[in-house]
Computed example of a mutant assay.
Amino acid sequence: MSTAQPGPRSWMRDLSYIDPYEPEYPSSDGRPMAESTTQFRWIVTIKEGLDALFAAYPNVFVAGDLLWYATKGDKTDVMAPDAMVVFGRPKGDRRSYREWVEDGVVPQVVFDVASHTNTPDEMAEKRRRYDSRGVEEYYFYDPESGDFEGWLRRPDGPRPISADGWTSPRLGVTFKAPPRKEALVILDPEGRPFRTFGELAKDEKAARRIARAERRRRRVAERLTESERQLRAEADLRAESDRRLREEAERRAEADRRIREEADAHAAALRDQVERMAAMLRERGIDPS
């Protein structure tokens, strides 16, 4: 793990990420940060632990729940790890991590915390995509079951690691995976465990960061609710428009039917009149033709 701090000039170069924001790359995928309180606690615990671990290193960027765009011009090539660590990029606020703005630096370490909606196929696809982009270490934790897995990137693909007692080559942290359904323990290089969500909440600065993350989660949820309400309203309007169109079509069909009936009746009356006149002429000895 490189801990060298850049000099003044290289630090200024690293600030190049402060480019005008590109609005075509959204800062949210429309999904809440977490789908349960358990998942949220663990995302915060891991992200804040990593933040504290690299607080003294200005060239290590740590983020949680930040969209990562890999290819300029393709906003569909996006990933949303629960936490990521990027060595060689400066700290600072970002609306998203745009790889081309970050000198092409790929996040080296990625964490995902399971939610109850995740499927094995979905997680396998995530792992494949992270590997294809060049992520060196990928860790997946399911706090409800206690399952913890890790993969290390190799030339022939991601290699699973023995997670219990494993020390991350990049982070220097050690993972202790206890028996199932017991909490994962993450130890920093000094052997101190990452602080839990509750312990972090007692720290004023961490509490403010947690509060901001929670407010963001609520805003996303509110936007989703409003979006769903608008979609329902639009669907109702379309249904009402369809209903009116059907009624108008039925009225036109009824009018057409009446016109045909009146035309048929008029034609029948004319035929009767012609036949009566012909009969009268024949009675008088006149050929109707």
Rank of each mutant, 00 (worst) to 15 (best):
S2P: 12
T3F: 09
P6N: 14
S10D: 09
S10I: 02
W11N: 01
L15D: 07
Y17H: 07
D19T: 05
D19N: 03
P20K: 03
Y21T: 08
P23F: 11
S28I: 06
P32S: 14
P32Y: 03
M33S: 09
M33H: 03
T38F: 04
V44Q: 14
T45Y: 02
G49D: 04
L50S: 10
D51P: 00
A52I: 03
L53H: 13
F54G: 12
F54M: 11
P58T: 02
N59F: 00
V60T: 14
F61Q: 01
D65I: 01
W68L: 09
Y69N: 05
T71S: 14
K72H: 10
G73I: 08
V78D: 11
M79I: 01
A80L: 11
A80M: 10
M84F: 15
M84E: 13
V86H: 01
G88Y: 06
R89L: 00
P90G: 05
P90W: 02
K91N: 04
G92W: 02
R94E: 06
R95I: 00
Y97C: 04
E102C: 04
D103S: 10
G104E: 08
P107C: 13
F111K: 04
F111H: 09
D112L: 10
S115E: 02
T117G: 01
P120A: 06
M123S: 09
A124H: 03
E125W: 04
K126P: 09
R127G: 13
R128F: 13
R128G: 05
Y130M: 07
Y130E: 13
Y130A: 07
E136Y: 05
Y139L: 14
F140C: 12
Y141M: 11
Y141I: 06
Y141Q: 10
S145N: 11
S145M: 04
G146E: 02
F148G: 14
P155S: 03
R159A: 15
R159V: 11
R159P: 11
A163G: 05
W166I: 04
T167N: 12
V173C: 15
F175K: 05
F175A: 05
A177W: 01
P178W: 01
E182N: 09
L184D: 06
V185K: 03
P193K: 07
F194L: 09
T196C: 07
G198W: 08
G198D: 15
L200V: 01
D203M: 06
D203A: 11
D203F: 07
R208M: 09
R209I: 01
R209P: 01
I210G: 04
I210H: 02
A213C: 10
A213P: 01
E214K: 09
R216L: 12
R217M: 08
R219M: 14
V220Q: 06
R223W: 11
S227C: 02
Q230K: 12
E234G: 00
E234Q: 05
A235E: 15
L237M: 08
R238C: 03
E240H: 09
R244Y: 07
R246I: 02
R246H: 13
E248A: 15
A249Y: 11
A249W: 10
E250C: 07
E250G: 12
R251E: 14
A255N: 12
R257S: 12
R258N: 13
I259W: 11
I259V: 14
E261F: 04
E261S: 13
A265S: 12
A268E: 15
D272P: 00
V274H: 03
M277T: 07
M277G: 05
L281P: 03
E283S: 14
E283T: 06
R284C: 00
G285M: 10
D287P: 12
